[in-house]
Write a protein that binds this DNA or RNA. Sequence first.
DNA 1: CACACCTATATTGTCTACAATTTAAATCTA
DNA 2: TAGATTTAAATTGTAGACAATATAGGTGTG
Lengths: 229, 229
Amino acid sequence: MISVSKISLPFEQPITAADKTFIKLRADIVEGELIAGQKLSEAELSTKYGVSRAVIREAMNRLESSYLVERKANVGARVATLSPEGLVELYQVRESLEGMAARLAAKNMTDKEIGDLNKLLTKHFDKVKDGQSYYQEAGDLDFHYRVILGSKNQHLIDMLINGIYHLVRMYRVQLGMAGPRVTTAFDEHKHIVQAISNRDEELAELLMRRHILYSKNNIENKLISIQQS
Amino acid sequence: MISVSKISLPFEQPITAADKTFIKLRADIVEGELIAGQKLSEAELSTKYGVSRAVIREAMNRLESSYLVERKANVGARVATLSPEGLVELYQVRESLEGMAARLAAKNMTDKEIGDLNKLLTKHFDKVKDGQSYYQEAGDLDFHYRVILGSKNQHLIDMLINGIYHLVRMYRVQLGMAGPRVTTAFDEHKHIVQAISNRDEELAELLMRRHILYSKNNIENKLISIQQS
DNA sequence: CACACCTATATTGTCTACAATTTAAATCTA
DNA sequence: TAGATTTAAATTGTAGACAATATAGGTGTG
């Protein structure tokens, strides 16, 4: 199975060793190779990733900013833990921010960008029909990224894409999201794009918030059923 | 004039040298002692604040996470610049997040917390009557902090209080906000608390968003008039 | 004179060593 | 034996030296 978190973000390109180590560590955390809640020893990581502790610390700082690790002074860092409460909190933030992103996208996306978004949707529809859940997963990410970028609000883009989206992906990857919500989510995407096409800011925000709320309920059920088993 | 940014946040207490340096630097940036857009040389700061470059770099990383400095690999860091566009973007994020905070506060604050919030409001009202604009400024912060904390959403709290609020304060402090909006803002606060008291989540969010929108227009006018002079 | 190239300087990135702090084990005491 | 205290080990925090990169100034060439 090809994992979503291997998909590279086109706009970030690593320059320093700290950049590369940060991206590797982030992928390993999202993938679950570094297990949720696990202690992260600087010395161990230093040998494992073949860089000095200074580089590890720099990377760790950024991971903390991305909410993927938690640090305590003079004690150390741990991989973020996943919990139903944490998920709910995360999705509340997402709902709020992506709702605003959709609103701004309806206002600020160019006609061409909206056209491309429509094309993307039909392309995904064909693949979803064939039952290619991987493409659905990637396609969902792609859709949301485009709307977020379409907001043209750099703060918002930063907070979502560098800030919380990797944690969102961590939840989804580790809970093995490729569920039965695929087709219904597709319809929701379609309606959101329609609202954006109509430049209906109010509706775009409302539909996006609803979409994320549904999405949360879906993933939350999975998380609870896993804990019970 | 006593400055708002000197008000310490009760919940963060510095432990390491990097903590202290981070807080000092942050205050100096918000105050405008380190001027917006200015280049930040690690060596200079190192001597100025009496710590090693390692500490400065650690502090700088956190400042970057707080959107107060911008870094470029192999080039260096600059103090964030203030612009009308940046302000609009910032307040759009604030509107979205604090709207959600108000909604959650209506749901999650205890009756006692709501009572305390009401008391705070009447206390501020007395001071505002006397024309004490400093207390209004501090009181406004206090009000917003309580609502944010009242959301009980740790992610949201983090993103607002550690993430963007210092940048908000940087705009306000450097534009010398103690304007004529004092009393009208007070009424808005009152209505928000009323909605929270009634556990009306929908209205609480709506009123908070409107409040921030008005607040943005106010500060934006000031920023534009400064640029023209 | 304009432009490209090279060189010197300054700045950031990285590494290693040392200091401070935490943690756990071992010892002592009631 | 339970609990407190001390001590030793391991881990994080900080400092300073070196390496890599960018910037600016000078030199040469068309």
